[in-house]
Each structure stands twice: as C-alpha cells, then as structure tokens.
Design a protein around this nucleic acid. Structure first.
Lengths: 338, 338
DNA sequence: TTTAATTATGCAATCGGTTGCGTAATAAAT
DNA sequence: ATTTATTACGCAACCGATTGCATAATTAAA
C-alpha cells in the first residue's frame, strides 16, 4: 500500500525501460519530448518520488554541504549560518551542521563524521584551540571543496572568507586614539586564531603610527567567556597607568565589561572609551551604546554558500589561493564619544 | 590510487565473502571472533571506510535528523539547536538544519525536501504564519517521528516539547501587578502561535484574578521586528489611561522598547515596569536590567534530541499524546522594581 | 565412529537509481 | 527505393553495502 513507487514500476506500466524513465525524469536530451511527457505524467499520477539514497549511491554524492562551527548559539555564527543556509537551500543543497564546541577533538570527530557521511563540501570555522589540521587531509586529498570562514587557516587549495581583521583592528584602535585615548588595552581571544592575532597586529600598528608605547600590560588574552570578566577587571584596576581606552575582541564581552565598569563607577566614555567588535544587536541596546566594527556575518555566510556552490557546480573557481575579503566598517556610538 | 576500498576488496584479499566482511564489521553474532579480528585488522590496514550511501540505500534510512526552525539567527533558536545538535551528535546522528524564514511556503518546501532526502525524523518549530499542516502528512503517514518544539501544533502521534506558556504569562503578569501596576499592556506576536496565545491567556487570567479590567487597548499584536517598535510606542502614547506595566513577548523586542521609552524620557521602572520573555543574554546587559521569564532553550533542545533519538532507537516512547513540558522561572531584575 | 546439534560462512537477491554502448526506428539525402 | 544520418530507446553493468537462506565446518552427544 505505502510501498514506494520506483522507476521500475513506472517502466512497467509504461512499457519502456527503466533507463528511459530515468533519463526522462532527468530531462536527458536523447529522449523524445513525447516520451518524456508520458513518463512525467504517469510519475505524477502514481506519486513517484525519487529515492535519494539510490541517487546518492549511484552518483557518489550526497547533495549536502557540511558545516563545522565552534558554537551554534552565538549571534554572529548563527547569522553566518543563516546566510549559508539561504544559499544552500536555494541551490538545492542540504546543510549538515555540527559544532565543535571550541574543542579540536570534537572538530576532528565532526570532520571525520561528515566525511564519512559523504558531504560534497565542507565549510569550517575553526575551534578555539585547533592547532593541527590533519583532520582536513581527507578532504584535500579527495578534492572535496574545503572552505574556511572567519576563523581560518591557510591550507593549500582551500578558500578562506574573512574580513581584513588587521585593518579593522587598526581602525578601531585609531578611532580610540583619535578620540583622545593614550593608554589602550586590547582584550583579545586566543592569538592562535587569525581573527584575534590580526586584530592585535592592527592594534599595535595603530599605536606605533601614533607614537604610543606598547608593552605587555596593553594586551590581555582571555577566553572571552562571561566568567573571565573579573580577570579583565582585575587587570584594568591593577595596572599602574590607568587605561583610557578599551578595544575588546567581541561585543558580548565588551558589553559585559561595560556593565562591570559601570558597577565600579567608572564612567563610559568619560573615563574609559570602549569599542567592541562584530556589531551584534546587543551593541546598540546597551547603555551607553557600544562603538564597534561591523562584521557582515550574513553576507559572509551568503558568500561562503555561493562560493562552495560554484565550486561544486562549475568546478571552476578553484584558484589555488582563493581568499575572499569582505568589507567591514567602523560604527561609532556613545561608548567612544569625546 | 585514491580509489575507495570496498568490502569486496577486503573480501578478496581475505579470501572470504563480502557478506562475511559485512557481518564482521557490524559485529554480527554468527561470525567467529577469529574471522572478525582478521577482517577488522585488514580493514584498518587498508584504510577501509564504509560507504554511507550504500548503507543508506540498503537500509532505507539516512542516520540524519531534519530540523526546521523559523530563523537560525536568533539567540533562542540557536541555543535550542545547540542542544539538539549535542544529543544528535552523541548518538551518531547528523542534523540537517533548514530555516523557514517565518514563511509557511518555505516551511512546506523544506519539509518536502527533507522528506525526499530521507531524514529519519523531523523536528519543527513552526513559522510565524503557518496555518495548515498538510506538509507534515507524509511524515505521519510514513511513521517518521515528527516532534514540535516551542512553536507547536497538536497533530496526532506527534510529540510536542514546550514550556507552560500560559502559566509563564500568568506569572509575568502577576509579578507586574504585585509590583503595583494597574494598567498593563501585553505586546504579543501572532496569536496563531501557541506561545503567544498561551501567554495571552495567562495575561488575561492574571488580570481577572486581581480584578483588573481588560480591554483591547491592553493588547497589541506585533511582528516583534525592530521596525515595529515605533508602532508599539505610538500605541503606548496614544492610549488615554497611561500604561504602567509592559509584558513583552520576547527580550529582544523588550530591549528595543526599553531603549525607545528611555528616549521618550519615560523612567523604567518608575513610570513603566517592563518584563520580557526568554532570558536572552541581552536581558542582563541592558540598562535597567530586564526582568524576564527564563526559557530553558538549551534543555529544550537536549530534550528534543533525546526524545527523537529514543523514538528512533527504541521505537518505544511513542505514546499517542506525548507532550513534554519544561519548567520555566521568573527572573526579577531592575526593570520591574518597585 | 556416527549422528545430531551448533556455529561459521557463502550465495545471491535486493535496495533504486545512473549511464556507456549498441541497435532499432525514423528522418533526410541521394 | 536505397543509403546515410539522426534520433530514440533498451540492455546490462554498476554504485557498495545488507540479509535470508542454504550449506559447510566444527563441536557435542550418543
């Protein structure tokens, strides 16, 4: 009763071969219009559904794209994913999404699982602590498109999609300086991740350009989790020369800092000016509103989606060094007013 | 060279049949320990990887779970997804995630696509405007587990996982009343969605219990998008009897309202007390901090994942009316202080 | 040692499409 | 009307597992 209709069923009722049915359904040129129409009409009538499992086996591809992100529940990442999903969906691809939870071990397992389940391509934003990249070797060896997003690593034949984090870091820092800050603190994530190290470079370059000294006190590495805010506060208070400018590696952590600073009766922006990163919705809702760097997450996702799909379809677009850089922008709000 | 090793290759080099190899790899009882070990060791040596496509075709199942959510880029939904993903991943299932973008049409397409690609189960949180449910008929007819999350609908043989929105709405409202509010406004989403209509019921019940009148002015339907804040403000200002308490259907919109109200020089909580919903991170970062209802999104996801997996594994747990209700809690912050 | 009971393996069909190659059917050219 | 192109379709191998059933190998019982 509920048995699925196959091309063989169609072939039998039409008195043609299964091959003809298959080709008709796929609009193959070597089938006459008349036959195609007969096949299609019968297929509709009988409620034929193509069995993807069989197609997959036969074609050795799954029509799915794998994604590994550090965490799903971050507004930035979920925005990126929304962009990817939109493109994938429009192109008829399914998205298998997994999270590394910022652990290289889990990232490895996910990479393997996705490989085994036969994804046609893989999009990755690296975990916090990923140091080696052997788990991507299968993909490269088997020419499965591999694209890094945001938190990237330079591997041969892999595209990367990023913003110019160094420049963004430079601009954020220079903005603080232009607003009169003399002693800045960059609160960073793990420097092994390009996004943080690049921003750090920009930070230092801006200091250098404006003749401001840099020493270790001007840099604080953090895991950017809510629990770490108190470490950051301790660092800020313990430093001999008081900071008057804060460049924080993401808006959420910046917002947390803002809250703590206010608790300590430190005035923003009068005493300390603060700039975040990402332009998360939160940055416009806190008090004072938070200056930040707009990071176009959705566009990033869209571009990543488009890129991977053009890889898959065209096979073109496989330039050896293929790095796409999106435009960021500085957003000035209350937290850095003079 | 790069050709994949199949069970036939293993069979040939071992001098046994493919069936034996298959059974060995799956630890089938009718194979001797010795043979199993030989097979497994050769498999490792040759770098054998099972071809999921073949397994899927043979077993007619995909080891994937489909998910349709309204939007990926909401902190609540991505938190739910994080919970689902964790459970699915631990159980060896892949997650195919798609978003309806709050449109029933896209929800239908997604449901069909996921069905066609052979997901073993489907988790759904309904789009804003979904009114009919035919697109889930395949699933029910073919006994593919279908579970609704958060934004649910009662379909035969489908589980739902929710919180008690009516009670939560009641508690939020009663809290406002206890803090001295006399003229409340409930800013709601579309009442066709259970979450909003249930909260509305709770709202009205609390008013009734405390002898407060209710008329249409006490209720405002909104799409809860940032653009709609001005409508809400207009409603608040145009009403003859000024409101002194606001119950807003989610924290993000509540935060937006907070900001606008402050712009209008309305004091929170002195003039108007505000309570949100969800306990998004943002609710603790705005000024004043926002009272809200804690909605355990991650736990919801975990439970949804567990539930679907136990359906798939045990086949048990298929009670006809299977509604899981999670515990919520009232979180009192500054925005509703006396 | 022979027979019966167990245990281990092989055979071959099956899952449902795709596709290269060969040929029949039709159309065009001579 | 015959030959040559073209077009339309069929055949059958193939993708890589799984699995019911038959049989061979081994062990236990008689």
């Amino acid at each position: 009763m509920d048995k699925r209709i196959t091309i063989y069923d169609l072939a039998k009722t039409l008195g043609v071969s299964a091959g003809t049915v298959s080709r008709s359904l796929n609009d193959h040129p070597s089938i006459s219009r008349k036959t195609k129409e007969r096949v299609i009409s019968i297929a509709n009538e009988l409620g034929y559904k193509t069995n993807k499992f069989a197609v997959n086996l036969s074609k050795q591809k799954s029509n799915t794209i794998g994604v590994i992100v550090p965490k799903l529940n971050s507004i930035f990442m979920s925005t990126v994913l929304a962009g990817i999903e939109k493109m994938a969906n429009e192109a008829g691809y399914n998205l298998i999404i997994s999270q590394s939870l910022e652990s290289m071990e889990k990232e490895k397992i996910n990479a393997k699982t996705l490989y085994d389940s036969g994804v046609d391509a893989l999009l990755v934003s690296l975990a916090y602590d990923t140091t080696d990249f052997d788990h991507f070797a299968y993909y490269i060896r088997n020419k499965i498109p591999l694209i890094f997003i945001d938190r990237v690593h330079n591997l041969p034949n892999c595209s990367t999609i990023i913003i110019d984090n160094k420049l963004a870091g430079f601009e954020a820092t220079e903005h603080l300086i232009n607003q009169g800050c003399k002693n800045l603190l960059y609160i960073s994530g793990d420097l092994r991740r390009n996004v943080y190290s690049e921003r750090f470079k920009g930070f230092k370059e801006a200091l250098a350009k404006h003749g401001l000294p840099f020493d270790n006190a001007n840099y604080l590495e953090s895991d950017l989790s809510p629990n770490s805010v108190k470490h950051a506060m301790a660092h800020i208070k313990d430093t001999h020369v008081p900071f008057d400018g804060l460049f924080v590696a993401n808006d959420t952590f910046a917002a947390l800092c803002l809250k703590e600073l206010k608790k300590e009766n430190i005035k923003i922006p009068e005493d300390i000016k603060v700039i975040g990163f990402n332009n998360d919705p939160i940055s416009d809702l806190v008090t004072p509103t938070l200056s930040t760097i707009h990071y176009p997450g959705y566009e990033l996702g869209v571009l990543a989606g488009q890129s991977v799909i053009s890889h898959l379809n065209g096979g073109i677009n496989l330039q050896p060094t293929n790095a796409i850089t999106l435009r960021h922008s500085l957003i000035i709000r209350e937290s850095t007013l003079k």
